[in-house]
């Protein structure tokens, strides 16, 4: 694609010119991104190592099956697909901004930068919703104490183990506190009210639970939350800083800094960072949601 005439027998390493035919800033941005790739790589490999070392992990299709305003419908992968397409699309608008920069079209750069920033903000909002959903959503889980408790997904709690049934479930119910039993009844029996269950003892409460309806899992490996929030958080922080960088670039474009300079290379460098964020998401998406 590069059409700049470069003699084929150019001696790149003879001094006097950049052997990479790129400016210092751009080469250093590449090296920074390479080192950042190793940071993300190390996180993801650490996660994968731990997962390989355990007989069981969580079923991502079960954990990530919610969509805003769709209540309790089981929609595996739907929300994260939306996030993925938002990020891919904002990557496209970024590369279009770089393209407009090559044409020295200031208005075009501005418009595409605005779209890219909006894409980044949309992605961050989705991530905020997803985190809130995981951190606040409580689920019935059989903990090591032998009782069923209501757990949310945090760095120390994971309610997403395999579903329990039969004798394991009836045994666990006998050790479970009346408060949790009441919540279990209320979840599937919509005619029951808290007041009508108030005076029942534990055995009466257990008899009211429809064992086929209620979903109780084992508590899964606690590391799931640490890795999920750690890695998606680190990625989200990259998206956030990318949005900040893009806003600065938009401001500098508006002020005409790049026009005065005669080239839009800063947009290219910010673009490299932004595409890298998309690149990392490809692997985060693969490791946490698909596999």
């Amino acid at each position: 694609m590069s059409t700049t005439a470069i003699p084929t027998n150019t001696k790149w390493w003879n001094g006097g010119r950049s052997p990479f035919n790129a400016s210092y800033g751009k080469v250093m941005m590449w090296y920074f991104l390479m080192s950042d790739a190793f940071t993300f790589g190390a996180f993801l490999i650490s996660y994968a190592t731990l997962r390989f070392s355990l007989n069981d992990w969580v079923d991502a299709n079960h954990v990530f099956n919610a969509f805003p305003f769709f209540g309790h419908q089981d929609l595996p992968l739907a929300f994260v697909s939306l996030m993925t397409f938002i990020l891919i699309f904002s990557s496209v608008t970024m590369v279009l901004a770089v393209h407009e920069g090559h044409k020295m079209n200031r208005k075009g750069v501005e418009n595409y930068m605005i779209l890219t920033i909006l894409g980044g903000i949309a992605f961050l909002s989705c991530q905020a919703w997803e985190w809130t959903h995981l951190l606040t959503g409580e689920h019935f889980a059989l903990t090591k104490s032998g009782a069923i408790e209501m757990l949310n997904t945090t760095v120390s709690h994971n309610p997403w183990g395999h579903r329990i049934s039969g004798e394991v479930l009836t045994n666990a119910l006998r050790h479970t506190s009346p408060d949790v039993l009441r919540s279990m009844i209320l979840e599937h029996n919509h005619s029951a009210t808290l007041a009508s269950l108030k005076d029942l003892n534990a055995n009466e409460l257990i008899s009211k639970i429809d064992l086929n309806e209620v979903y109780v899992g084992r508590s899964g490996p606690a590391a799931f939350g640490s890795y999920f929030f750690g890695i998606t958080g680190f990625h989200g922080f990259h998206v956030f800083s990318g949005v900040v960088i893009n806003i600065v670039m938009l401001a500098k474009t508006r002020l005409g800094h790049f026009e005065q300079r005669g080239h839009y290379e800063m947009i290219e460098k910010a673009g490299l960072y932004w595409h890298f964020v998309d690149l990392v998401w490809v692997f985060v998406f693969l490791c946490f949601y698909l596999i």
Binding site: M1, W12, N21, W30, S91, V95, V98, D278, L279
Partner: peptide, 19 residues
């Protein structure tokens, strides 16, 4: 993404290989 969006495919071989 790397080759087209980040234009690494359009850079010269020296830069490509160092990455």
């Amino acid at each position: 993404i790397v080759s087209v969006f980040m234009h690494l495919g359009d850079e010269i071989r020296n830069l490509m290989m160092t990455i």
